[in-house]
């Protein structure tokens, strides 16, 4: 299910104003996603690693999450090196791996790891509901914020409902196999989950109406950014600016290889 282990630690980044973290994470991710220069990509990866160290994240959890991302990246390595035209590096049977292909795969690998590490350091260090509040304060359309929040809140309830139904099936000797009975039973399970979720959403709405809900959400807490946090956020933003300059302003040509 949704685990929030990383948000439970203590570090400077954990206490950091989530609004600033979201802004920095956003501009950083977009910039890194557009980089093509290898020096800058490596610099970004180092920057992300510094952030992760700063947030004192559990190495085991970080590696586990990286493994998921790199699972997808692995498939790119199977295809990309052989899909570009250019100087041949090596051959596997009839397929030729080209230099531009390998470079492209390497770029994507660096980008995705740098971005994920940064998101882990900046976003996973805040509990989900703090992020929700921050989004709210950043004036993200409230429909989107509520959609995100209610999904988070009730996915747990729906999961519990799923386990309950699934256990009820198991105790009546249901063993999944490849036959129509299994498919049918699973279809019923999913159907029942849908119906129950719908019913529940109706009840939640009713309970909100009963407490005077009129379409507007009020927030109880306000955020405050300490001056020190503003400075840290500014430094991170300067880094983003530097890599952007390095990538797109011609004077960075010296760096290209």
């Amino acid at each position: 299910m949704i685990s929030e282990h990383l948000s439970e630690g203590t570090s400077y980044l954990h206490d950091f104003d989530p609004r600033l973290k979201i802004i920095v994470a956003l501009i950083y991710s977009v910039t890194v996603a557009l980089l093509t220069n290898f020096t800058l990509l490596f610099a970004s990866l180092v920057f992300s690693l510094v952030l992760v160290t700063w947030g004192r994240l559990s190495i085991a959890t970080v590696l586990k999450r990286l493994l998921v991302i790199n699972g997808f990246v692995f498939f790119l390595w199977l295809v990309l090196p052989f899909s570009y035209e250019g100087k041949t590096l090596f051959e596997v049977g009839p397929l030729a791996a080209t230099q531009p292909g390998v470079y492209q795969a390497l770029r994507i690998t660096l980008k995705s790891n740098a971005i994920i590490l940064c998101l882990m350091a900046l976003l996973s260090t805040s509990p989900t509901f703090m992020l929700v509040h921050a989004l709210h304060h950043l004036k993200v359309p409230s429909k989107l914020v509520h959609l995100f929040f209610f999904t988070y809140r009730y996915i747990h309830v729906i999961y519990t409902e799923f386990t309950r139904l699934h256990t009820a099936m198991k105790v009546r000797s249901f063993t999944p196999s490849t036959n129509i009975h299994t498919y049918k039973s699973y279809a019923y399970l999913v159907g029942m989950l849908l119906v129950r979720s719908y019913e529940r959403s109706k009840r939640i709405y009713q309970s909100m109406l009963c407490r005077g809900f009129n379409g507007k959400f009020h927030t109880l807490y306000h955020f405050e950014s300490k001056p020190q946090e503003l400075v840290s956020a500014a430094i991170m933003t300067v880094f983003v600016l530097l890599i952007a300059i390095g990538q797109w302003i011609p004077l960075g040509k010296i760096l290209t290889f």
Binding site: F129, Q206, S207, G212, H218
Partner: peptide, 23 residues
């Protein structure tokens, strides 16, 4: 409500209790 999960939808206890009074 019969099922507290229908009633408690805010992330924290304080915010859920505050929901009505804020409304």
């Amino acid at each position: 409500f019969q099922d507290p999960d229908d009633q408690l939808f805010s992330p924290t206890v304080a915010e859920d209790i505050a929901f009505g009074p804020l409304n």
